[in-house]
């Protein structure tokens, strides 16, 4: 049932992100049991599955914040799961947005966004601050540049986190349940930013259970269960006509 990777428009091209047979063990527990995935340039891929099924671990293997125990990750055709790879420059090229924002509380919004530009991209400080400011304006936070995270709402903090990734001009951004920690009335402001990014052609991998949002934005949906992919396909097809009983069960429970 889990067919070969979907024929996306760019199938002939090198995918932006490719995972080949990823396994991950934590001590004795086998958390990822051979995951393959291809994310084309400009594609939005959604990951769904019950809690503990390995979505976050997989996402973290893609920028090697977690080291895969087996398997390879390729970014734009280059193997990054290689001892000689400079992981720092790989990570600088792949943004990551966490469920609980993880902003740096001792810095203003602007400093949060400028940090990577200054210390990783080695931009001069004032140039970095200009770039950071424009990233924050892009996510609608023009009035909050000088505020610290504790002066911002959850939705605003999450948008700062997105701007922090965005400012690095990444090849792709990984989102790990970006709206799960938010109050319901703030969810849309974050989803709106993500939708705008998608429409501008940003490559994105999104762990999310916001069905309505995914239906509009995600090209491909991958269902995780117990460390394996149990179903994958175009988002509307998987949502409307799930083939695997577990997918049906999971989607039924969401409604």
């Amino acid at each position: 049932m889990s067919a070969a990777p979907e024929a996306t428009p760019d199938a002939a091209q090198v995918p932006m992100i490719e995972a080949r047979g990823i396994h991950k063990y934590f001590g004795g527990t086998h958390v990822l049991r051979g995951i393959d995935a291809r994310v084309a340039h400009g594609e939005v891929v959604a990951l769904m599955g019950r809690s503990g099924s390995g979505k976050s671990t997989f996402l973290r293997c893609l920028n090697r914040i977690e080291e895969p125990s087996e398997g390879d990750v390729l970014i734009d055709g280059t193997i990054i799961t290689d001892l000689r790879t400079n992981v720092n420059s790989v990570r600088a090229d792949i943004g990551m947005v966490f469920q609980d924002y993880n902003l740096f509380p001792h810095m203003t919004a602007l400093e949060n966004v400028a940090l990577g530009l200054i210390h990783v991209r080695k931009r001069p400080r004032n140039e970095a601050q200009d770039l950071a400011a424009s990233a924050l304006i892009q996510v609608g936070l023009a009035d909050h540049l000088a505020k610290h995270p504790n002066q911002l709402s959850g939705g605003q903090q999450q948008r700062v986190a997105i701007a922090r990734s965005l400012a690095m001009r990444p090849k792709a951004i990984l989102f790990d349940e970006p709206t799960s920690a938010l109050d319901p009335e703030m969810v849309h402001e974050v989803l709106d930013v993500m939708r705008a990014l998608a429409s501008e052609g940003m490559t994105m991998v999104v762990v999310s259970h916001e069905i309505g949002f995914l239906r509009k934005v995600a090209d491909q949906l991958i269902m995780f269960d117990a460390g394996k992919v149990i179903e994958r396909g175009p988002t509307a097809r998987v949502l409307d006509a799930p083939e695997h009983p577990r997918t049906r069960e999971f989607l039924g429970a969401l409604k």
Binding site: I94, D100, H106, V120
Partner: peptide, 26 residues
Amino acid sequence: NRNQVLSARSIGLSAWQAMRLVVLPQ
């Protein structure tokens, strides 16, 4: 919080940079 380090590393900061710029000031 360990997530502060993860967050810093995900931007591309090295372990030493994450320590100096993110962890120690807090």
